[in-house]
Amino acid sequence: MSTAASRATTEIPAAVRLDQVTKRFAPGGPAVLDRIDLTIAPGEFVCLLGASGCGKSTLLNIVAGLEPASSGTVQVAGSLQLGGNAALMFQEPALLPWLTARRNVELALRLRGVPRSERRDRADELLELVHLGGAGDKAVHELSGGMRQRVALARSLAQERDVLLMDEPFAALDAITRDLLHDELERIWLATGRTVVFITHNVREAVRLGQRVLLMSSRPGRIVREWTVEVHGQRRIEAPEVAALAMEITDHLRQEIRRHAL
């Protein structure tokens, strides 16, 4: 993990900075997100963890510029988020079924203004990066779930944004494929130096991937605790230190959930 940046310092502008971000879906209604402060350094891999309904997807949508915050400011790559500053990957591959794998990637390039002559080669490079070099001409329905999600990853990378937001991208995959995609994502993160904000409700996944794991509370959504994962070299999801930290985090997560029992 040599390319991974260390903690945020004042000199380097943060990749993502949230300042007192609050979100209410109705004016005067309950706060879904409550005064969230968050700074993510360039090149950092941060996992956001929380129970269903804690507002983590809302938080990600706000960072992506898909939804406005009710109050507070969001900065991505040093400028105010007005939309389109960050790449976003969903739980579903969300590939366009009338396009081939390559064309899906090319669309992202095209919408970014990459000239036609460069698109094809660039798309092939990106598909090669996710180990799908030979699948460019395949229709979406001919790809397996894992392959589709890798095409979606290639499409996100085609956006050439420094920040990659991922909303439970592997939640719908089987365990074997998911394990493999963890390795894949880690490799690509190291190779490209992107800042990754990864949402999950899978504690082990968070510990497996993140340099930092943030635990969110529900109603109102707040960041209540934070862990730094001190692992050198590649981790495996089966490793005992991953399990140990996951257990600790799970206990806190359950405490958070229990608070809502009454």
């Binding site: 894992g146 074997i176 494929t177 390795d183 590649q234």
Partner: peptide, 24 residues
């Protein structure tokens, strides 16, 4: 388990190729 160098790049590639073949 801790220090086992998880997977080299070629491992991931061949694993993925195998899984892709199985799943399609």
């Amino acid at each position: 388990t801790t220090t086992a160098p998880a997977l080299t790049m070629n491992d991931v590639r061949s694993l993925e190729a195998g899984l892709d073949a199985l799943q399609t």
